[in-house]
């Protein structure tokens, strides 16, 4: 089969026509480029980054480390059990004291 010549090929290529550009394209470009403020902030929260100077970053890291060490070393509050019970009862440590008395022989 003899291949097409240049003019025939060009003529055939012109037969394939694209659809018209959708009119919604312009508005979708502007909407995407200027999203509402909450979408901008959501995107920033998901993908944003902040530049922190090294001295500030180091100072914040050391402060956080010091706070963490202090929290680990801090003495436990006395009567830890009592604190737990207090959370369970509305009258603080009284039920434990009362039940102890109840068991004491009279």
């Amino acid at each position: 089969m003899q291949p097409l010549d240049d003019d025939e090929l060009r003529g055939l290529l012109r037969e394939w026509r694209p659809p018209l550009t959708p009119s919604s394209l312009e508005s979708s470009v502007y909407n995407m480029a200027n999203p509402p403020w909450f979408k901008r902030y959501l995107r920033w929260l998901a993908t944003g980054s902040i530049r922190v100077p090294v001295p500030v970053g180091l100072a914040v890291a050391m402060l956080l480390l010091a706070l963490a060490v202090q929290a680990v070393r801090a003495p436990k509050p006395a009567g830890g059990k009592c604190v737990a019970w207090a959370a369970l009862t509305s009258s603080g440590c009284l039920p434990a004291v009362d039940s102890g008395r109840a068991r004491r022989p009279s």
């Binding site: 394939w16 694209p18 659809p19 550009t21 394209l25 312009e26 979708s28 470009v29 995407m32």
Partner: peptide, 28 residues
Amino acid sequence: HKDFVYRFAWRMTGSASAAEDVAQDCFV
């Protein structure tokens, strides 16, 4: 240039929705 970009994307992808997405991303 919108028609040019859309036509090019449509002929490359063969899909109107893909062409619209590509044209949109291109201008953004």
